[in-house]
């Protein structure tokens, strides 16, 4: 029996969850429907079923290129951000150090800056230093705005992980790296995954900063915004969005498979924990 929830509570929570999923997916459903509508407006009435938009976007190399650029930028951003955020979060939670308040303030400060301003300022900086604009510069900017999100996702988790496990590991003679790898990181894994997800989606959808620091390879949302001048191209963009949605659903299913593998790993960690606490 689950101590967190009563039977009735469980049911209402699931109903609430279902409603929220409907709320989240209603616009997606609309997009899916209209990606087959034979008309350039996203609006009723229904004009007839067509595959035209899908056919057209497959041949639109600029659009596909933009999609690739976004995937690249988002991947790069999420990997680097998470790598930077892990040590920062751990140190913020576990250590006292000089000017800690200032450092934690700095790490969260990028949440504040208006993106237009940041985009322009960063452009001037790149220009000054002589870094040519490319997907890489977009990723550099996205890492800045995503870092606080990653840290804010990991810190609460770390606060809930007991220090004693790590101490026990050290007492048993494991070095700091080994302790990190076999104790801290597995326990932090859910937060790392969450942070990765958040950062990826933020970067994938960010347009304001990107509009200033992208060179001649636009990201997907940037391409989309510029296409707004041309209503004829809007349906294609929607078709692409539907495909992206579909692909991410496949990722969800794949992750279900991945989860089972991960579970087995976590069991191993749990066993290790027991050994540690027993020792």
């Amino acid at each position: 029996m689950n101590p967190a929830v009563s039977r009735g509570g469980r049911r209402s929570l699931w109903i609430f969850f279902a409603l929220l999923v409907v709320f989240l997916y209603a616009p997606i459903l609309i997009l899916i429907v209209f990606s087959f509508n034979d008309r350039t407006f996203v609006s009723f009435p229904w004009q007839g079923f067509t595959f035209r938009w899908y056919r057209e976007f497959v041949h639109n190399s600029a659009l596909l290129g933009a999609l690739r650029t976004s995937a690249l930028v988002a991947t790069l951003t999420s990997v680097v951000t998470v790598v930077l955020a892990i040590p920062a979060s751990i140190l913020l939670v576990r250590r006292r150090f000089f000017a800690k308040g200032a450092v934690s303030g700095l790490l969260l400060a990028p949440l504040v800056i208006p993106l237009v301003v940041f985009g322009i300022a960063l452009l001037i900086l790149f220009n000054t230093v002589g870094i040519p604009l490319s997907p890489l510069t977009v990723a550099i900017g996205h890492i800045v705005i995503a870092l606080p999100f990653a840290i804010l996702t990991m810190v609460p988790r770390l606060e809930r992980i007991s220090v004693s496990l790590e101490e026990a590991s050290r007492d048993l003679g494991a070095g700091p790296l080994r302790t990190f790898r076999s104790i801290t990181l597995p326990l932090l894994a859910p937060a790392v995954l969450s942070a990765f997800l958040i950062v990826f989606t933020i970067s994938f959808d960010e347009v304001v900063v990107a509009s200033f620091i992208a060179g001649d390879q636009p990201t997907f949302p940037l391409y989309l915004f510029s296409q707004l001048r041309l209503p004829q191209r809007l349906p294609q963009v929607i078709a692409v969005a539907v495909v992206v949605m579909t692909v991410s659903s496949i990722v969800v299913i794949a992750s279900e498979v991945g989860r089972r593998l991960a579970d087995r790993r976590l069991e191993r960690v749990a066993n290790l924990q027991q050994e540690v606490s027993a020792g």
């Binding site: 509009s211 001649d216 940037l222």
Partner: peptide, 20 residues
């Protein structure tokens, strides 16, 4: 030619002012 696109005309001017 190689093309890059702006989202609106004010943005193009600001980006140019920023050194693009």
């Amino acid at each position: 030619p190689k093309f890059s696109f702006f989202t609106n005309t004010e943005q193009a001017l600001a980006k140019t002012a920023g050194g693009y």
